[in-house]
């Protein structure tokens, strides 16, 4: 972490997101925001509240409902001197823009041998558990971790959100910045004023422990912390909890060091199990720490089903009970 900040304020994650954009719009003329309802309305979650009033309609731009158009134009703007922050209203509506990300934003640097680069941040609220309508709750981070040329970042609290978003805007390559909706207002953390970075590619150890390393990200951080708290209160077990924060590139050192210390691992995510980022974590542990393992690596994930309508979403999401069971299974193996 590098920081020039002094004062801090307690804020929610959504305020941290807004604070980062406010800071970067203020400091850098080339930063701009594009999206649906991001201007006058301040965003459907209020992530851009007041930014239109302060920075004007040329920098905080209400676009047509046109995801491919938003990303495609952002590519043109990014290549030609700007640093756009494109908001997808929900991750579940990024699919019309998939082509622009897959075939252009992430490839232009290589296709042009470095002549054209795309310093673009795509922000997207995501995840289940907020009783949203259909399609609004998808958790498809793995579609993007397998997309060469982009980085995938997921904060779970205000401090990380602000520092990671600033780092993402400053990054010379495209970054997908995922915002777990359930974390938007679930907690408040101290956030420094001014500009500071949380480095992309670095996980955060939320809680140290000796018996098992529990890796998670996004809204599952909330459930994992709850599960661990409950479990430790009733059993003699000590869990290390790590918020990965960046899903590509993964923090190899932190993951390996933790597993080598505890000898056990569990991975918790709400995305469907098959093809999930957990597989990359397992593979990384296999490559770095196989001989340290004392139990099979546990995984608690969403089903290989579409995220259901909200009457069933609690069935779909990994529960604290499932997380506890998985941890015990490894510890008692």
């Amino acid at each position: 972490m590098t920081t020039t900040a002094i004062n801090t304020k307690k804020m929610t994650m959504i305020q941290g997101v807004r604070d980062a954009m406010h800071e970067m719009l203020k400091e850098h003329d080339d930063v701009m925001i594009l999206g649906e309802d991001v201007g006058v309305n301040g965003g459907v979650f209020r992530a851009t509240e007041g930014l239109y009033e302060e920075f004007g309609e040329d920098r905080v731009i209400d676009t047509p409902i046109s995801e491919s158009g938003i990303i495609g134009n952002s590519i043109g703007l990014a290549v030609n001197g700007f640093r756009p922050i494109a908001e997808m209203q929900f991750l579940g509506f990024i699919y019309p823009a998939f082509n622009q990300l897959m075939t252009h934003a992430t490839r232009l640097r290589q296709r042009s041998m470095g002549r054209f680069t795309v310093p673009l941040v795509v922000r997207a609220p995501y995840g289940a558990g907020v009783r949203a309508p259909e399609i609004h709750s998808d958790s498809v981070e793995a579609l993007f971790t397998q997309m060469p040329g982009i980085k995938v970042v997921v904060p779970s609290n205000a401090y990380d959100a602000k520092g990671l978003l600033i780092a993402s805007i400053d990054d010379p390559d495209p970054v997908l910045f995922l915002e777990p909706m359930r974390c938007y207002r679930s907690s408040r953390t101290e956030v420094p004023d001014g500009k500071y970075n949380v480095e992309i590619g670095k996980a955060s150890v939320l809680k140290e422990g000796d018996d098992i390393s529990v890796f998670t990200w996004g809204a599952m951080v909330i459930d994992t912390m709850k599960a661990v708290e409950k479990l430790e209160a009733k059993k003699n077990v000590s869990c290390e909890v790590i918020d990965l924060r960046t899903l590509y590139p993964l923090d190899k050192e932190t993951i390996a060091a933790s597993v080598q210390k505890t000898g056990r691992a569990a991975i918790i995510h709400e995305a469907p199990a098959t093809g999930g980022v957990s597989n990359d974590v397992i593979s990384l542990i296999n490559d770095t720490s196989f001989l340290y393992l004392r139990a099979p690596i546990q995984r608690v994930a969403g089903f290989d089903t579409p995220v259901p309508v909200y009457s069933l979403e609690q069935e779909y999401l990994p529960s604290t009970e499932k997380i506890q069971t998985a941890i015990l299974h490894a510890v008692d193996f």
Binding site: D58, S68, I75, G76, L77, A78
Partner: peptide, 15 residues
Amino acid sequence: SQLLHATGAAWAEKK
């Protein structure tokens, strides 16, 4: 797909 890059790059010039 390239039509959108053309509007984006032109937009940057205009800005």
